[in-house]
């Protein structure tokens, strides 16, 4: 059975005056898929998200969400969407549970539905013990989970997450990823923006890399890594003064090198043996590290810039 895409964008463009925020991007999202928009700040990810919800009007191109044009059918589209914005926008004065209930009012959901739903969502977000705590007293990670719970109050078919873990500590990020992964397992379509490569790798089946409003690559995290990076990366530091001067020597050892201000990245499928070779030649880096390559490396390769500039 052919699966009709839940989101279909063709040549989607958004300009603000002279500035082109989104530049003729096309993509599709299949039902149940976890789809990522990856790119640095200002790449056009959030604008794309807002156009999906019909809260930003496109300049040109076409966009269908659940078969509808979000500009014409805003309420119909948004009734099926769960939105987790970049800023939590919770009611700080209200208790955690009340936040879910009052949010449900936006959808016109009855209290008989919202009461049990709020309890269920608090449990899902691991916030049952904080049900009666004021939001102002919750940690950043808890607020984020509450915002996700809030986005689920209308049983959305698509959950839009704009930078879901920005500003969270590693432990809070992992808890959040776990919750999102469970939603994905339940068949909820996830669309998320992130500028974290590890997040995209953890959560996305497929992603597009956006830079300056354009899609520069598309595929699964593994495909992108295979295509634009190598299996492993050796990071070496010679100190900021020597990094540039070592470039020539290193190029004779391996083909792909990226020289960053603080370190040099060497792309190779066999990182350990490459590092052995560096040491054998007596180059003596101050520090060295062999790691698996990531989407960060893909982005660097595609744009020549680091993601988190």
């Amino acid at each position: 059975m052919q699966r009709v895409p839940v989101i279909e964008a063709r040549e989607l463009t958004k300009t603000f005056g002279d500035f082109t925020a989104v530049d003729a991007i096309s993509f599709e999202v299949a039902p149940g898929e976890s789809f990522g928009l990856l790119g640095p700040n200002g790449a056009g990810k959030s604008t794309t998200m807002r156009m999906i919800g019909g809260t930003s009007l496109r300049t040109s191109g076409s966009l269908r969400v659940l078969g509808l044009d979000p500009e014409e059918h805003g309420p119909e589209v948004r009734a099926s969407l769960g939105v987790v914005p970049q800023q939590d926008a919770l009611d700080e004065e209200l208790r955690a549970r009340d936040n879910l209930i009052v949010y449900g009012r936006y959808f016109g959901l009855p209290l008989s539905y919202l009461g049990p739903k709020a309890d269920e969502l608090l449990e899902f977000a691991q916030l049952t013990e904080k049900a009666n705590a004021k939001v102002g007293a919750l940690s950043g990670g808890m607020k984020r989970r509450l915002t996700i719970a809030r986005g689920l109050v209308n049983e959305p078919r698509i959950l839009l997450l704009d930078e879901p873990t920005t500003g969270l500590d590693p432990q809070a990020r992992h808890i959040l990823w776990d919750r999102l992964f469970r939603l994905k397992e339940q068949g909820v379509t996830l669309v998320l923006t992130t500028h974290f490569m590890d997040e995209a790798e953890q959560l996305c089946d497929r992603l597009v890399v956006i830079d300056k409003g354009r899609i520069v690559a598309e595929g699964s995290p593994q495909e992108l890594i295979r295509q634009y990076a190598t299996r492993e990366v050796v990071e070496v530091r010679f100190g900021s003064a020597r990094n540039a001067e070592m470039e020539g020597v290193l190029r004779s050892i391996t083909e792909r090198i990226e020289v960053l201000p603080d370190r040099i990245l060497l792309y190779d499928d066999a990182g350990e043996s490459l590092l052995d070779e560096i040491n054998r030649r007596g180059l003596n880096p101050l520090t060295s590290l062999v790691r698996r390559s990531s989407l960060e490396d893909v982005f660097l390769r595609l744009t020549g810039r680091s993601l988190i500039d």
Partner: peptide
């Protein structure tokens, strides 16, 4: 319970009601 239940909420009806109310 770690799952969110999906009871088949009628989104079209929610949207219709919201357009009016």
């Amino acid at each position: 319970m770690t799952e969110v239940s999906f009871t088949g909420l009628d989104h079209a009806a929610l949207a219709r009601r919201t357009r009016r109310w």
